[in-house]
């Protein structure tokens, strides 16, 4: 009974964080800021949903699988965010106009100066 209630609470927290992640995806200005929300909040959201499954069914095959999926999400989502942001920057996707500093762009253009564009 307690586990059931706890499972429902964790599920609601997880879904709330997933909702926040999607809201951030829609509201924030550029690729990089959007990745912030989808990796961090999305990770905790998915983790919460998986944890709720684990609490509901205990250490049965389904619960153990949910735990494994949660750990894999925790390990892989930063790697995905890194690759997406790196690809975006190399592709020339600029930062939003509120940005104050871009040391990566400076380092890139110092290493291989781009030809003058007309």
């Amino acid at each position: 009974m307690i586990l059931e209630t706890l499972s429902n609470v964790v599920l609601i927290i997880g879904l709330f964080f997933v909702f926040l992640a999607m809201l951030g995806l829609a509201r924030l200005p550029d690729v990089y800021n959007r990745l912030h929300t989808t990796t961090k909040i999305g990770t905790l959201g998915a983790f919460g949903v998986m944890l709720s499954i684990l609490l509901k069914v205990g250490f049965s095959p389904m619960g153990v699988k949910a735990l494994t999926v949660a750990l894999f999400i925790l390990v892989t989502s930063p790697v995905a965010a890194h690759m997406i942001s790196r690809a975006a920057h190399r592709h020339g996707v600029g930062l939003c106009k509120e940005s104050v500093i871009d040391e990566y762009g400076r380092a890139c253009s110092a290493a291989c100066p781009e030809p003058e564009e007309e």
Binding site: L20, Y32, E98
Partner: peptide, 21 residues
């Protein structure tokens, strides 16, 4: 999560992002 959630829930998004070394 709490910090980013606060930023997302602000009525007006006021951030100063950037890439640092």
């Amino acid at each position: 999560n709490i910090i980013v959630a606060k930023i997302v829930l602000q009525p007006k998004i006021n951030i100063k992002p950037g890439i640092i070394a």
